[in-house]
């Protein structure tokens, strides 16, 4: 697992209280991992803090799955 992927998964496990095995690349935050709209905002904020990046709102809207988050951060971090 890449370093970015490890750190993203760890944040999701911590914030959403889910098992690491559930956090697959295709898993949707809202449909599969039980996040509501505020949880999703919090995840984006945690990614920004962890990787010291700023994710604009229009980009954040496109980050729906674990895989979306990892690939966005790999491109922008």
């Amino acid at each position: 697992m890449s370093d970015i992927k490890t750190r993203v998964v760890a944040i999701i496990v911590d914030k959403l209280g889910v098992e690491e095995s559930e956090v697959t690349a295709g898993a949707s935050f809202t449909n599969d991992l039980g996040a509501d709209s505020l949880d999703t905002v919090e995840l984006i904020m945690e990614f920004e803090k962890e990787f010291n990046i700023a994710i604009p709102d229009d980009q954040a809207e496109n980050i729906q799955t674990v895989g979306d988050a990892i690939s966005y951060i790999e491109k922008n971090a």
């Binding site: 505020l38 905002v41 919090e42 904020m45 920004e48 803090k49 700023a54």
Partner: peptide
Amino acid sequence: GTPRFNPFFIP
């Protein structure tokens, strides 16, 4: 100084 507030802060 980056205004990064938790969405659960107010509620």
